[in-house]
Design a protein around this nucleic acid. Structure first.
Lengths: 146, 146
DNA sequence: TTAAGTGCAAAATCTTTGCAAATGT
DNA sequence: ACATTTGCAAAGATTTTGCACTTAA
C-alpha cells in the first residue's frame, strides 16, 4: 500500500471530493498519511495549535462524510480517525478490518492487511459490518517492556 | 444462563462487593438484568428521572470498578453498560465476546454464547483482549423491515 | 466576484468534583 | 454513631452553532 503521498496527491484528493485546497486541510491530510496510527481530535489540536479547534472539528467531519477518513473509537471511547483506503466510499466504509489499541501508548493501529474470519450470528441477526478490536501492546511498547 | 434475578440476588450481589444496598443501586441492577441489551447513561436517565444524573454516573462507575458490569461503546461512541457474567473479575473483564449494534434501534446486544475465532496479528503485536463488533439489524428490527 | 472555509464568541452537552444532607448498617 | 451514598451547585471538558471575515477558484 502506498501510504506515502506528496503534496500534489493531497491536492488531487481534495479536488476529487470538490473540497477547496486550504492550508489547514493539506496539513491535516499530510499528518494523517504520515502516521501508521489513527489520529484523535486532541492529537490534532496539540500538533496544530495555530489552527482553530472548531476548524479541526469541521475538517474531520467533512473528511469523514466524503469517505477520506473513517472513525474508530479507542478504549476510552475517544474518536480516532484514520485514512481510508481506495475501496472506501463516502458513507460506506470498508472498515471490516482489525483495529489494534495499545494499552500503553493508546495508539490505534488499523491492520488493513488482516481479514476477519467468518462468524455465524444467532438466528435473527443480520450483520452488515464487522470490526474487530484487539487490545494489548503494540510493537513499539512491546519492545520497551520485555 | 440465568439472567433473571430477584430482589434478594441483587442484594447479595451488592453485599458481595461491599456496596450498600440502596434503592437507586437496586433499581439500576434490576433494569440492567431485565434487558438483553446494554444500557447507556442517557437510557438510565430517561427511565429513572427521579434519580440524580450524577448518582447514575457514580453507580455505573462503581459497578464497573467492581466488575458487576462492563463498558462497551456503540456505533456513536456512546458508552453502554452490560451486566457481566460469572467469569468477570473486577478490572479484568471477560469481554472477549461479540457485541452486536443494531443500526436501526441502536441497541447493543452482548452475544456471550459466541466465541471469537483465533486470529494471527502481524509480528510485534501482543494481543491481550479481543472484542468483535458486528453491526446490522437485530432480530426485532429485522422483522419490521422484511 | 462569490461560494466555501475559517476564526471567534457563545451555546449546548456531557462528565467530574466538592460539600452538606440523607441513608444504610 | 459512623462511614457511605446521594443531591445539588458549580466547575471542566467536549462538541455544536451563528455570524462576520478571509481565502481559493
Amino acid at each position: 500500500m502506498s501510504s506515502v503521498k506528496n503534496k500534489y496527491q493531497f491536492e488531487d484528493l481534495l479536488d476529487k471530493h470538490q473540497l477547496k485546497k486550504t492550508a489547514a486541510r493539506l496539513r491535516v491530510l499530510s499528518m494523517m498519511y504520515s502516521k501508521n496510527t489513527a489520529t484523535s481530535q486532541p492529537d490534532l489540536e496539540s500538533v496544530m495549535q495555530d489552527i482553530d479547534r472548531v476548524t479541526l472539528y469541521r475538517i474531520l467531519s467533512v473528511f469523514e462524510e466524503k469517505g477520506i477518513i473513517h472513525k474508530v473509537f479507542d478504549l476510552n471511547g475517544t474518536a480516532n480517525y484514520a485514512v481510508c483506503h481506495s475501496d472506501c466510499e463516502a458513507n460506506h466504509h470498508h472498515d471490516e478490518h482489525v483495529h489494534f489499541n495499545c494499552t500503553a501508548c493508546y495508539n490505534v493501529y488499523c491492520l488493513n492487511e488482516l481479514t476477519l474470519p467468518d462468524l455465524k450470528l444467532p438466528a435473527g441477526f443480520r450483520a452488515e459490518g464487522f470490526t474487530l478490536y484487539a487490545s494489548g501492546l503494540c510493537p513499539t511498547c512491546s519492545k520497551k517492556v520485555s
